[in-house]
């Protein structure tokens, strides 16, 4: 020990501020791969279908994914902190039901938009409490609440359909909010939220805390980050935005059935995972999720232009999800050799 002490002061290399820029790193970044994939999807679609690049068609395409994409944003944050919410589609069903009941009770159109988010928030509070206060695994809790929330919707609705929505409400879902460029409300909300989420995650102290929790929840707690409180509020946020998605979805299709948004949780989680958010927590970006949203949205839209049935598309999406995880794992194994 004696002989090593003096060397400390003498041998000192300057430490660079930033990691050196490397082309390989940049190209191998997940987001770069997604960009290439998106370009491929656009080219493929344009080549196969002359209707694809029509601005009105593209705008209509956003109707098919914007609501899911809105929920994918908070889901990305949840998965980032090592939690998951499988009940989002069921929350949408329950929120849509309550919106329907409110409409039947004569609640005026603008206020109808508040019902969904409020119901969703309540559902999120319930999930969050069970997971963070009682300490139950989120996957089991949300499988349970998935049955419970949709079950309640089913009990109330039976095999009935609520389709008595005022046009002042459905217009928001069915016609352009902005005429040129033609944009629907749901897509505008998604874009605004995506920017907000990206800024929060990548530019604020809160975002940094989320990464710390996802990478090492224990060290995060030791560093003064209120891990469980943050997780709790992320569940509430996820519920809230699922409720907002329900409001938009209900306005768009103008009706509520018990099977509304059935299976959406899988598509939403696929968007998040394909976007590069690690299911183990701690890594992922909002721009990655946005790219995945567009890739999935445009694949589905392009294939539906070609009259491919939706269920066949799910083969492609399922495979894409698995490949998106397998590829980096296999690549890493190859590189290690």
């Amino acid at each position: 020990m004696n002989d090593t002490s003096p060397s400390i002061a003498t041998k000192r290399q300057p430490v660079a501020d930033k990691a050196p820029w490397s082309l390989a790193d940049f190209v191998l970044r997940w987001e770069s791969i997604l960009v290439l994939l998106l370009i491929a999807v656009v080219i493929g679609n344009t080549w196969r279908s002359p209707y694809f690049l029509d601005i009105y068609n593209l705008s209509d395409a956003t109707q098919n994914f914007a609501e899911k994409a809105i929920v994918a944003l908070p889901m990305a944050l949840l998965i980032l902190v090592r939690e998951i919410d499988l009940s989002v589609a069921a929350i949408i069903a329950l929120a849509s039901l309550m919106t329907g009941l409110a409409a039947q009770a004569g609640v005026p159109a603008p206020l109808l938009f508040l019902v969904g988010p409020l119901v969703g928030m309540a559902c999120g509070l319930f999930n969050g409490t069970l997971v963070t206060r009682i300490g139950l695994p989120s996957i089991v809790v949300t499988i349970g609440t998935m049955s419970l929330f949709r079950g309640i919707a089913q009990v109330v609705l039976g095999d009935q359909v609520i389709a008595t929505y005022p046009s002042g409400y459905t217009d928001y879902g069915q016609s352009y909010l902005i005429k040129w460029p033609p944009l629907y409300l749901s897509f505008i909300i998604f874009l605004v939220l995506a920017v907000v989420f990206a800024l929060v995650l990548h530019r604020t102290a809160f975002g940094r805390k989320l990464y710390a929790i996802g990478n090492n929840p224990v060290a995060a707690r030791f560093s003064g980050i209120p891990v469980e409180r943050i997780r709790f509020w992320l569940f509430v946020l996820t519920g809230l935005l699922a409720g907002l998605a329900a409001a938009l979805l209900t306005a768009r299709i103008g009706s509520t059935r018990p099977n509304i948004a059935l299976g959406w949780e899988l598509e939403i989680i696929t968007m998040v995972i394909l976007g590069g958010v690690s299911i183990a927590g701690g890594s992922g970006t909002i721009h990655g999720v946005m790219l995945a949203v567009f890739i999935i949205g445009l694949i589905i839209f392009g294939l539906s232009l070609l009259n491919v049935p939706g269920i066949v598309i799910s083969v492609l999406l399922g495979t894409l999800l698995i490949l998106s995880l397998a590829a980096p794992l296999l690549l890493r194994r190859l590189l290690r050799r």
């Binding site: 998951i84 899988l266 399922g318």
Partner: peptide, 27 residues
């Protein structure tokens, strides 16, 4: 095999095949 030898988390793997297997019925 993908879970055991590639190391894909089970929940994601079977979420993917949940969609894929059902789609294959139509294919």
């Amino acid at each position: 095999s993908l879970i055991a030898f590639v190391g894909i988390p089970p929940i994601v793997m079977t979420l993917g095949t949940l969609a894929a297997f059902r789609g294959l019925i139509v294919v």
